[in-house]
Amino acid sequence: MVGWARCSRLSPRSARRTRRTGCGSWTARWSRCGTGGWAPPAEGDPCVRTAYEFLADGRPVQLSTSWEPYDLTAGTLIVLPGGGPHAGAGVVNRMDAIGVTVSHAVEQPEPRQATAEEASLLGIQKAALVTHIRRTYYSDDGRPVETADIVVPAAHCEIVYEIPING
Results as ranks from 00 to 15, higher is better:
M1N: 13
M1Q: 08
V2R: 03
W4Y: 09
W4A: 11
R6E: 12
R6D: 11
C7T: 01
S8C: 07
R9H: 12
R9W: 12
S11G: 10
P12N: 01
R13G: 04
R13A: 09
A15I: 00
T18Q: 00
R20Q: 11
C23A: 14
C23K: 10
G24Q: 12
G24F: 13
W26S: 07
T27F: 06
A28E: 05
R29D: 01
S31D: 10
S31N: 07
C33R: 09
C33K: 04
G34W: 00
W38D: 10
A39Y: 12
P41A: 10
E43W: 15
G44W: 05
G44A: 06
G44K: 08
P46S: 01
V48M: 07
R49T: 04
A51F: 12
E53K: 05
E53L: 03
L55N: 00
L55I: 05
A56C: 15
D57E: 07
D57A: 09
P60W: 02
V61T: 02
V61G: 07
V61P: 13
T65W: 06
S66L: 11
E68F: 03
E68K: 07
P69M: 01
Y70F: 10
T73V: 13
T73C: 03
T76L: 00
L77K: 15
L80G: 15
P81A: 01
G83K: 15
P85W: 11
H86T: 08
V92D: 14
R94S: 13
A97G: 01
A97W: 02
A97C: 10
G99V: 08
V100M: 04
V100G: 13
T101C: 08
S103G: 02
V106P: 07
E107V: 04
Q108D: 15
P109K: 02
P109D: 02
E110C: 06
E110Q: 07
P111V: 14
P111L: 14
P111D: 15
R112I: 05
R112L: 09
Q113R: 12
Q113T: 14
Q113I: 06
A114V: 02
L121P: 01
L122V: 00
G123P: 10
I124M: 08
A128D: 09
A128T: 03
V130W: 09
V130A: 00
R134F: 14
R134L: 11
R135K: 14
R135I: 04
R135S: 08
T136Q: 08
Y137R: 14
S139L: 14
P144M: 03
T147D: 10
D149I: 12
I150W: 01
V151E: 12
V151S: 05
V152M: 13
A154C: 11
A155F: 08
Y161F: 13
E162F: 06
I163D: 15
I165Y: 11
N166R: 12
G167V: 11
